[in-house]
Design a protein around this nucleic acid. Structure first.
Lengths: 143, 143
DNA sequence: CCCAATAATGATAATCATTATCATATAAAC
DNA sequence: GTTTATATGATAATGATTATCATTATTGGG
């Protein structure tokens, strides 16, 4: 499995050495695009490639990759941090969490635009946002 | 300081005994309406009234009050739970967090309506939502 | 190529927030 | 007023995350 070009560029800009363990973590994140993984889950997957990998290295790697925005770090109500591969084009911080099947869906960014314009008129200078909608997804809703 | 009528009713319906310590916690939450407090912060405040109050009791009380929706429990990116008095009328789950002064502002619920209607057309059955906007508030933005 | 300097790793201890346990205290029921 | 149930506070246990540190790998200069 290869690393994507965009990611490579950002790593180089950050002078980030690509060790075996970091590569394993990155590949997991790439394979699980769109999923939100805990450090523990990443460890489990990455150990398929690097069996002696330690949890501390996973935490350090995820943390640094989040700092250079290769990953996005977030927390849900369960109380632990989850990481996902960040898509360069979009922030992808708008989620729908299905209460029944616990799948996570992404919402188009544009849908927040009118709300944010409203707030900007009030003088807020918006930097980032995060929306979590708790719902039954179309599939679970039908049941 | 008295407890509000609406809260009292909900407590009675839940057969919730109002001990000294629970009352102290509730009064703190009422005095800090609109603020999002950690268990530790509630403990500190409530000990003004009940000095021997233990942290376990605070956690238990906050948890039970959240269960009957007298409080609302949420988590921000810092990674610990915060509680606020829930306003009966509105969900009040839309927040602006100022990056500079870390004050928290509430956003009118209505501003999400059009976005949610859009999702409902796609088949989602929305139960709840939570929006966090990271921004400079009007005051900090001017500086 | 070899050695010194630097950075990364893995094991594990430390920390922090939260939850569980349990003996004691308080309140309710009879 | 004694018994029974419930709540409390101290503290141990837990789970996630971070810090420490000895060991290992990598790099650059000679």
């Amino acid at each position: 499995m290869m690393l994507e070009q965009g990611i490579k560029e950002r790593l180089e800009k950050a002078e980030y050495k690509l060790t075996q363990q970091r590569k394993a973590v990155l590949e997991v994140m790439q394979n699980k695009r769109g999923e939100h993984l805990t450090a523990e889950e990443v460890l489990y997957e990455a150990r398929q490639k690097v069996p002696h990998l330690g949890i501390a290295t996973v935490y350090r790697t995820l943390e640094r990759l989040a700092a250079i925005e290769v990953l996005y770090k977030t927390i849900f109500d369960e109380g632990k941090y989850r990481y996902e591969l960040s898509d360069q084009a979009e922030h992808q911080h708008l989620h729908i969490l299905c209460i029944a099947c616990s799948r996570i869906f992404e919402v188009e960014e544009g849908l927040l635009d009118s709300l944010e314009k409203h707030l900007e008129k009030d003088g807020f200078e918006i930097v980032n946002h995060q929306l979590k909608i708790y719902a039954y997804c179309p599939e679970c809703s039908r049941k």
